[in-house]
């Protein structure tokens, strides 16, 4: 199917983007990699009046180091992320999850920022950003603001990015040394989208788990932190038994959806199994 007609703008700086968003009329959409927006436009579920293409805004693309964070530009593609040495060193969880996203063609175009703003409950990067306590830098007509991941994901396909605003970059705290990480994902072979997945980052100290951060993919309309599991793990012995006992709490308080791939109770079961696997691997067990 062919999308409805639209006006096309191709700015080259963030300031020009904001101006194009302000002048674009009633329904303006930014186009990042287009790997979610174009399918939706083809189905005419979206028919924006104006499309603002971020493809030429060089300042939005790339990964850099800033003190104790690494900063990922919103337009950094999934392929760029996979090839990036800083990500590999300080946020291997991001690389591991990104490698499971879609296929090589989609990863060549789809972007880190686009995947986060799109906020599909089955998308892999939102739970990872939540588990890593990422910060989101958003530009708007009134300037820039930075908000934490816990405030960024608001509802189904909805984030804190408002009309007229733009996600500029995402700051990931550098986690290295005693941190181990793993993304455990369950999906059908023919479809990369997660039925359920679990992102775990674990810090070990003297045979114990000092701290664990766990994000759940597709266990509700937004990504979730498995707080009960995190609390149960804090200070626990790093043994398979202790991890399994803590992981049993993973689905507490969740209300996942039922669909063709899985019923809600099956998703809850998967969450406990995948949490055990993700934490065990992250803790080096």
């Amino acid at each position: 199917m062919i999308p409805a007609p639209f006006e096309y703008a191709r700015p080259t700086t963030v300031d020009e983007v904001l101006q194009a968003l302000a002048e674009g009329g009633e329904d303006v959409k930014v186009l990042a990699g287009g790997q979610s927006l174009i399918p939706v436009m083809r189905l005419r579920l979206a028919a924006p009046e104006t499309v603002v293409d971020l493809g030429r805004v060089a300042e939005l693309r790339g990964v850099r180091e800033e003190d104790d964070a690494i900063v990922v530009g919103a337009m950094t593609t999934h392929s760029d992320v996979l090839a990036d040495p800083l990500i590999r060193q300080y946020a291997p969880l991001v690389a591991e999850a990104t490698a499971t996203v879609a296929d090589r063609q989609v990863r060549h175009r789809g972007t880190f920022g686009g995947a986060l703003v799109h906020a599909d409950p089955a998308g892999d990067l939102p739970a990872v950003a939540l588990a890593l306590d990422a910060d989101f830098v958003i530009a708007g007509p009134e300037g820039r603001r930075t908000i934490g991941a816990s405030e960024f994901f608001v509802d189904y396909l909805t984030t804190a990015v408002q009309e007229g605003e733009l996600l500029v970059e995402v700051r990931l705290p550098k986690l290295a040394g005693s941190w181990g990480m793993h993304y455990a994902k369950f999906n059908r072979v023919a479809q990369a989208w997660s039925i359920v997945a679990v992102a775990a980052a674990v810090r070990r100290e003297d045979g114990r788990i000092a701290e664990a951060r766990i994000g759940l993919t597709n266990m509700g309309p937004t990504p979730l932190r498995a707080r009960q599991v995190e609390e149960a793990l804090a200070g626990a012995e790093a043994t398979p038994e202790a991890v399994a006992a803590a992981a049993a709490h993973a689905a507490e308080g969740t209300e996942p959806s039922s669909d063709l791939n899985a019923q809600a109770d099956y998703r809850q079961h998967l969450a406990t199994v995948l949490t055990r696997r993700a934490v065990s691997t992250a803790a080096g067990l």
Partner: peptide, 19 residues
């Protein structure tokens, strides 16, 4: 519909010609 754009494989049904 896969083609290469600047040497990278992409699905050409999911790219606008203007891009």
């Amino acid at each position: 519909c896969t083609v290469h754009v600047d040497g990278e494989a992409v699905k050409s049904c999911t790219v606008f010609a203007v891009q």
